[in-house]
Amino acid sequence: MITAGIDIGSTMTKAVILDTDQNAVLASSIVETGAEHRTLALFILEDTAKKAGLSCGQVAFIVGTGYGRLNIPFADKQITEITCHAKGVCHLFPQARTIIEVGGQDSKAIKLTEEGTVGDFVMNNKCAAGTGRFLQCVSETLEVSLSEMNELALRAGDAMPVSSLCAIFAQQEIISALSRGTPVEVVLAGMYGGFARKILTMANSLRIEREVVLTGGTCKHAALQAAFRRELGFDVLIPEEPLLTGALGAALLAGKYGGRLSREELEALQLRRSFTSVEIS
């Protein structure tokens, strides 16, 4: 069966098309989310289907997930990103027991059961601290690009983590440290350390168990990966494309729910599905 998973996140939108019989990802896409979710969802599905050499109509079952999951009118089911990330990560890393996902505007920790299902989870989306947005703010304040920040921090290694709970306080702490003459590499390493620590404090309530997998766009920063390793005291696993685990999980779950339907029911679903073609400028 050909399935699709669409993950509309606050910053990035991702799609995966899967052939469940071959257990192969046929194509995937990552684009920036903007304000218009509905047209974006169709656009990314069409784009990904094209890459796979298919048309949208050939997709048997579609699952929508992410922050904007309610804005995918043609999705056959909408499932939370927690369940989808768990599914996607478990597929890539069967030995995973704890997932830490750092998104653009939220962060989550998910505990997996031995069967690979969600055992428990915890989320933070109340404030910027511990999310990609915080790093964005620091980058703008210091007028240093995200990749430069990452490079600089990696040079420093170990440093006293920034302690503040609040993103605004943390920024002020960073600025104070710089004005005291602390080298910028040390300050940034401390920032990543504080960042990891804040997320781990949240995750600790789940009783972190190995293997730990990091996902989400923000974890592409090597400095953040290093900070997590330091704070945890052991290595972490990172998918090749950390942004796609949600969409992958959604596509896999599409296979599960689509698989429960008969061929007639699937055909009827495909016929009923309405894609309104809209031009995206």
Binding site: S163, L165, C166, F169, Q172, E173, S176
Partner: peptide
């Protein structure tokens, strides 16, 4: 007693 909730600059 929570030093994380102290804003020194302010």
């Amino acid at each position: 007693a929570d030093p994380r909730a102290i804003n020194e600059a302010e």
